[in-house]
Structure formats: C-alpha cells, structure tokens
Simulated scan of single mutants.
Amino acid sequence: MNDMTVKAYATTGLEPFEAHRLCAVLHLVSGLEQSGGATVAFSTAMPMNRQSGFLVALGDPMTETLPATIDSDELVIRVNDFAQLWWEAADSQYLGIWREPVSRQIWLDVCSFHCNEIAARNAADRNGQLCFWDIRNNCERFASLGLAAL
C-alpha cells in the first residue's frame, strides 16, 4: 500500500482495497486534466514510472469510450466503475486514460507493457488496435492495421 492509499483509507473509512483503487482513479483523472492522459499500474495504483517501452490496449471488452462533454463528477464515477470492473482480472496490467485530440472523447483501456516495438506492434495487431503508445517518445506508433488505413 502506498502513502496515498494509507491516507485515503484513514480519512474515508474505505476498505484498503477500495482506497487503493480510488487513489488510482484520482491519479488517472488528474493526469487526464493536466496532460491529456495517464497510466497507472493495477498492482500499485501509482502512475507508471517507466522511461521507455510501449503500451498496447487489450481492446474489447477491456476498453470504454466516454463522451467529450462528460462532467468531472461523472468522469470520476465512470473511471472508478471501469477500474472496479477490471481490477482483479488485470492485476499485472496497466490502466490508461487519454483524450482523443480531434473528437475530444475520453478512452479508458486496460493495457499491456512491452519492452520492444516489434512485440508491441504484434500485440497491437492481435488486439485489433490501430496504434500503440511509445513511452520514451511520448507519441503514438502505428500498428499494421493503422498503417493499412493510411
């Protein structure tokens, strides 16, 4: 349990597991508001601290799209519901949130981490994804499906 989880547990009366998840949700919402996206590890409920590698969304059913017009309170509720749904099933994975720049829709994804670009591209292809995230360069990379759509 991290310090934020301990504080949330002590001040809210939530069970430790719920406080842990709530910390992850707050990290995600804060990251979305500050920089357009964020990723937390399910195992620690903390923001991902890797300096390189690639994240690939697992796809349906472990993804959800929220409307651009969602208000802050509803966003926290929906992110919490999504996290609660996938928390135990995705323990070794990551939970990401990001705002699509054109439509402004918000995406929630359970993601896997890959050390190299080839493995990430192969996983993205298997998962039916158009793109995957390059952590070091802070940008999307096209998967084979994305390249074919160009």
Rank of each mutant, 00 (worst) to 15 (best):
S52R: 08
A124V: 03
P67A: 15
R136P: 00
L66V: 03
I106K: 07
N122Y: 10
H114N: 04
E74Y: 14
A45H: 03
G96V: 03
W98S: 13
V102Q: 15
I97G: 01
T44Y: 00
P101Y: 14
I118R: 08
M62I: 04
N122A: 13
D109A: 02
A119N: 10
A38P: 00
L66W: 02
D71K: 00
W98F: 15
L75S: 06
D71P: 00
R99N: 11
D109Q: 05
L85D: 13
E100S: 12
S92M: 05
L95Y: 05
T63Y: 05
V110L: 00
Q129P: 05
S103Q: 12
Q84I: 08
F42C: 01
Q105A: 09
P47N: 12
I135M: 10
N138V: 00
I77C: 06
N80H: 15
F54A: 07
N138A: 11
P67Q: 13
A83H: 03
Q93W: 07
L28D: 05
S103A: 14
D109I: 06
G53V: 04
G36C: 09
G53E: 06
E64N: 04
Q51P: 06
A89F: 04
C111W: 01
P67S: 15
F54P: 01
A68T: 14
L28Q: 01
S72W: 08
N127G: 02
R78S: 07
L66G: 00
N137Q: 14
D91S: 11
S103E: 15
N127C: 12
E64H: 07
F132A: 01
L66E: 02
F54S: 06
F54R: 01
F113C: 00
C115L: 14
M62A: 10
D125T: 15
A68G: 14
M62H: 07
Q34W: 06
A120M: 03
Q105N: 13
I77V: 15
A119I: 07
I70Q: 01
M48W: 06
E117G: 03
V110R: 06
H114T: 05
S43E: 13
V40M: 05
S35Q: 13
D71W: 09
A45M: 10
T65W: 09
R104L: 15
N49S: 11
E64F: 00
F132I: 08
L130F: 14
Y94R: 08
D60W: 01
Q84D: 14
E74A: 14
W133I: 09
I135P: 03
S43N: 11
R136C: 11
M46Q: 14
V76Q: 07
E33G: 01
